[in-house]
Amino acid sequence: MGIVSPGFHGRPRGREVELPPGQYLVEDFPVLSAGPTPRVPLDRWEFSVTTESGTTHRWSWPELMALPSERMTVDLHCVTRWSKLRTRWQGVSLDTLLAGVETAADFVLADSYGGYTTNLPLQDLRNGQAWIAYGYDGKDLSAEHGGPARLLVPHLYLWKSAKWVRGLRLLTRDEPGFWESAGYHDYGDPWREQRYQGD
């Protein structure tokens, strides 16, 4: 427990929802990104996975739409401290996309239209933990929230869920992405409050 702030009471307790440490609940869906919102026309959209040996697997928008999709309800935790619970998404599991990809890589650098990047361990994208999401709350995912499609990895802080995702590079060594190079944590587990390097 920190030092007591004289006269600070905080919100009424009681409605106990378990949130990761340092987070507070929001009902709306705040936007956080580092630059202008890219607009990606669907006829030029492509998603790719490039392995450590240089093999590239590609999906056009119609090819992505043709894959089996899942509907998932997940909690979101942003490093800027808001959490939003029970959000509803639709997308293709990374298990489906990685099924035909041969790799011995341990790490992934996701990259986005607009130049954003973020790094994750490959195992965090497998076993029903991650999706390429294109639907939110029953509608197409809007551009400001990462549409047409974003990575969704809800068990990590939301900056790992790269908006406007364009591809994954599979790597044998971890390579820091955009925020990670600016001092944010390489893994980013909200329940262990891994916000910054060294946490």
Binding site: V26, P30, L32, G35, P36, G114
Partner: peptide, 24 residues
């Protein structure tokens, strides 16, 4: 504002943004 800048011809890579989230 960021859309205005890119439409006027500013390179998106030179446009840094910081948003004050609602719900704070």
């Amino acid at each position: 504002a960021a859309d205005i800048l890119t439409k006027l011809g500013h390179d998106p890579r030179r446009v840094r943004t910081e948003r004050f989230g609602a719900g704070g």
